[in-house]
């Protein structure tokens, strides 16, 4: 595997050629916030939180999907990037109704952690207060659209790992919604295998196990470690 050298935050690092900027940064303990990204799933580049500045590029580039190249000069944190990340998280908080105090995932939520880390104490935008439905028709799990951030981890894990492709997206823009099968209640889905991978990967309390009350939903992802690690390495042309 050819090695390359690149500069991240004024420090020189060597890396393998097929690695993304995000992987290299994380290997060396440099923190880049992410939300839609999940190691081992195909990168989507939708949440834009992992944007980093790349010398020579007129706009910031997403670290999760940009492959490292020889001689890249990257800055992972600057006043501008932090401001952008804050605004992006604020946009997410304003988009749907994220009321932590009544959420099953309070204290275990990735969106909440991100907001706290970025020091967001208020949202400068209008709350859109969309009154979205819930789908509790499945026996063991439920979906609350009001907490969904459309990271599409559920769609990707269901398609690529479970192979069921139960989840997909309906509509576009701000009216996008996660749908089961061809937009039927989750309970009527014939393709869903009840494996729960989507529920465990969901960063917020949008997908959760029934029976959990405020703050009780903790996501258990260790059973996916091996398969996702294998997929991550395969994307770089390596094996376990």
């Amino acid at each position: 595997m050819p090695a390359i050298t690149l500069t991240i935050n004024n420090e020189l690092f060597s890396a393998r050629k097929e690695q993304t900027i995000l992987e290299i940064a994380r290997e060396h303990g440099i923190d880049i916030p992410t939300l839609c990204h999940f190691e081992g799933l195909e990168a989507m580049g939708g949440c834009r939180l992992c944007l980093v500045e790349l010398q020579g590029s007129p706009r910031p580039v997403p670290a999760c999907i940009t492959k490292a190249a020889e001689g890249m000069v990257i800055t992972t944190s600057s006043d501008k990037l932090i401001e952008y990340r804050k605004m992006l998280v604020e946009l997410l908080l304003a988009e749907r109704t994220h009321t932590c105090s009544i959420c099953v995932q309070n204290n275990n939520c990735e969106l909440q952690t991100l907001a706290a880390k970025l020091g967001i104490d208020h949202v400068r935008f209008d709350y859109l207060h969309q009154q979205l439905p819930m789908d509790a028709s499945r026996e063991r799990f439920a979906l609350d659209h009001n907490r969904c951030v459309l990271c599409l981890r559920c769609v990707r894990v269901c398609d690529a790992v479970e192979g069921a492709h139960t989840w997909d997206v309906r509509g576009r823009g701000s009216t996008s919604r996660i749908v089961a099968d061809l937009d039927r209640p989750w309970g009527n889905s014939t393709s869903c295998t009840d494996c729960g991978k989507c529920v465990q990967l969901c960063p917020t309390g949008a997908l959760y196990k029934k029976g959990a009350t405020v703050g009780e939903m903790k996501k258990e992802r260790s059973f996916l470690n091996r398969i996702l690690e294998r997929r991550r390495l395969a994307a770089q042309g390596r094996s376990l």
Binding site: M44, G45, G46, C47, R48, L88, L91, L92, A94, E95, F125, D126, L128, L150, V169, G171, R172, G173, S174, T175, S176
Partner: peptide, 21 residues
Amino acid sequence: CLDESCGKCVPCRTGTVEIYR
């Protein structure tokens, strides 16, 4: 643009709505 945003990335999906408001 608000109508036509595909909804994949956050700045366009929600940003257009907020700018419109």
